[in-house]
Design a protein around this nucleic acid. Structure first.
Lengths: 98, 98
DNA sequence: ACAACACATGAGCTTGCATTCATATGAATG
DNA sequence: CATTCATATGAATGCAAGCTCATGTGTTGT
């Protein structure tokens, strides 16, 4: 790991901050497990109301953790890339050893 | 990755939340790079005042990310385990590819 | 025992986040 | 083209995070 710049640190902190929320983390885990999902499906799985979910999905999009594509009336959300799953897996394994 | 429980998700989210702060993340990176450091050394490296640093160090301790041992008048902080570095490294590599 | 140093803690303040409510946008369908 | 379904957005609110300031606790040295 080469020395991170301040910008790297800020960007990384905001990435981790985006994941540091039970609802948003659940979304990421749900997408990792199930592949692409609609907003209403995510609401049902995670237990957030539609509006709250939309707000949190925007945070995840801004953090480039998820991406959305329209499919008819629905929006299908999926993970943005493979790093996301990796980060979450490490964090989970940290938790389970303590 | 086996299915996480709700408690796992909550614990993981708070772990990531603890890292999702530039000052705290800088502390973790500094400890990873330099090994154990005193509070005043961390203040100098990270750029937080002593009181603010102590408050943030408590968050990191509560999240079991760092541990402290007294050495004379000083407190020496170090990373709690190897997972921490791993999580941060992944997050950094995610940032650098985007 | 007291003074100085290193750090922790608590109160108070400001600011930002997460939710809710109301409303807007966008697509399909009759 | 008006209505309905799916999602997004904006304003308002409640609450917690993070900082500063003042003070407390623990340790060394004299």
């Amino acid at each position: 790991m080469t020395m991170p710049t301040e910008a790297d640190i800020a960007a990384t902190a905001s990435l981790l901050d985006a994941l540091g929320h039970p609802g948003r983390l659940s979304v990421v885990l749900a997408l990792h497990t199930n592949g692409a999902l609609s907003v209403s499906a995510l609401c049902a799985l995670v237990g957030l109301e539609q509006s709250a979910m939309s707000h949190q999905l925007r945070v995840l999009r801004d953090a480039r953790l998820v991406q959305a594509q329209r499919q008819g009336k629905q929006m299908l959300y999926s993970l943005h890339d493979h790093h996301v799953a990796h980060i979450v897996a490490d964090a989970l394994s940290h938790i389970r050893e303590n």
